[in-house]
């Protein structure tokens, strides 16, 4: 593993609408380490994860992933980073298989169809592969998003409330997934209210309060 940290925030602030959602936040996370991100609703967790995922960019300050500043290097960074969030990025009127196959083709995958089939089997949606996402429950949508995350095999995985909306078997599967990503050397940031589960999976912790760093452990 190299010396450059997977995530480096330098005095990052983000204005969201007229308000500051994240205020002067700095931290680094070494590659291969995992971070538990906690905080109340509205504390800036989602905004922070979206910034790290290059979905949006800091108003002030800089974020660097693997030593590359995000705003200028978004094209190179995006294939390496995956975000699992409330907004599931799925097209409601396409089937699960079509949604995933679009993602696979955009990543330039070889034999996307076979890969998509295999992944849908893995997340337990093999039988519903050709149903439109509109007919899916929230938990099933999450499973499709998980399949898309696996497809990308990211070096940095950002999981925003990954356990939400999942049934107990889904939660166990999700934990297995996080461990698998970690075993592959991926850096994981996990934002969750289930602090005990989160602690078991991560080595570091960042608690946000009104967009500020409250404590690290």
């Amino acid at each position: 593993m190299s010396d450059t940290p997977a995530i480096e925030l330098k005095d990052v602030s983000k204005r969201f609408g007229p308000r500051w959602a994240v205020s002067r936040l700095s931290f680094t996370l070494a590659e291969g380490r995992s971070l538990l991100l906690t905080g109340h609703n509205g504390s800036g967790k989602t905004t922070l994860l979206r910034m790290i995922a290059t979905a949006t960019f800091p108003t002030l300050g800089e974020i660097a992933l693997f030593g590359h500043e995000t705003r200028r290097n978004r094209a190179e960074l995006r294939p390496k980073v995956a975000l699992l969030s409330h907004a599931n990025f799925l097209y409601e009127d396409l089937t699960a298989a079509q949604n995933l196959s679009l993602a696979a083709q955009l990543l330039g995958a070889q034999a996307p169809a076979a890969k998509v089939k295999e992944l849908l089997e893995r997340v337990g949606l093999g039988a519903r592969a050709h149903n439109p996402v509109r007919q899916f429950s929230a938990g099933m949508r999450k499973r499709v998003s998980i399949a898309r995350l696996l497809l990308k095999a990211p070096r940095l995985a950002l999981l925003d409330e990954p356990f939400g909306e999942l049934d107990p078997s889904g939660i166990t599967q999700m934990e297995g997934l996080v461990r698998e990503l970690q075993a592959q050397g991926a850096t994981v940031v996990l934002a969750t209210h289930l602090i005990e589960q989160g602690k078991a999976l991560t080595q570091e912790r960042l608690h946000l309060e009104q967009g500020r760093k409250e404590r690290t452990a």
Binding site: S13, W20, R24, L25, L60, R212, R215
Partner: peptide, 13 residues
């Protein structure tokens, strides 16, 4: 309309 930029963080323990 816009909040002023945030001040420096509190000194950490």
């Amino acid at each position: 309309a816009l909040e002023a930029p945030p001040e420096a963080p509190r000194q950490e323990v």
